[in-house]
Design a protein around this nucleic acid. Structure first.
Lengths: 87, 87
DNA sequence: TGCTATCCCGGTATTACTATCACGGCCATG
DNA sequence: CATGGCCGTGATAGTAATACCGGGATAGCA
């Protein structure tokens, strides 16, 4: 009747998303990326650490842009096919 | 002091996102896209009509995939550059 | 040693997102 | 004219995302 809690798969997917963004960041500091993307530092840390399984689209887009990571490549790496989602 | 309400620009951006997704859908019915993407029909309607300014990343990715719209093209069309945001 | 800056984690508060239900309009079909 | 399907909107409910606060840990410098 409401919103079903996120499944373990969705959380796992969130962790992978964070890992990819962190890897793409490379040697740049979190603060630098946060500033460049316009995303708050705390939001960035939570996303990178996977504690935010399903971040907002524009937040991810801004971060991916800041670390020069194509969105399509990111989506493909996360294998959206089976995990369409709905969160 | 907590989470600031979305700005008019962010809402406008959400409306454009919905418009792009609807345009990319073409002649296909909402129900068909909802089924193909795994997103609920109501969520799809709200997103397409722009009543959901900042949908989740995976939700948008699933919809874009269902309507064969590259994410990068979508992000670029929305001109994220100045509206990094943080929502 | 003490000071400063940065990063990370936890908890709290408020808003936003998705799902379900309900009502009404539109169109096609019987 | 009646019925059913699809669409759109509004209300309600519950979970998730983000901002702010505090604490702790680490590194660099006076």
């Amino acid at each position: 009747m409401v919103r079903p809690p996120l499944s373990p798969e969705e959380r796992e997917r969130g962790r992978r998303l964070g890992a990819l963004l962190r890897a793409a960041r490379g040697t740049r500091t979190p603060g630098e990326v946060a500033l460049a993307s316009g995303v708050s530092l705390e939001a960035l840390r939570k996303i990178e650490s996977g504690r935010v399984p399903t971040p907002a689209f524009f937040t991810v887009a801004a971060l991916a842009r800041a670390v020069d990571l194509p969105l399509d490549q990111l989506a493909e790496a996360l294998d959206l096919t089976g995990t369409a989602l709905s969160a």
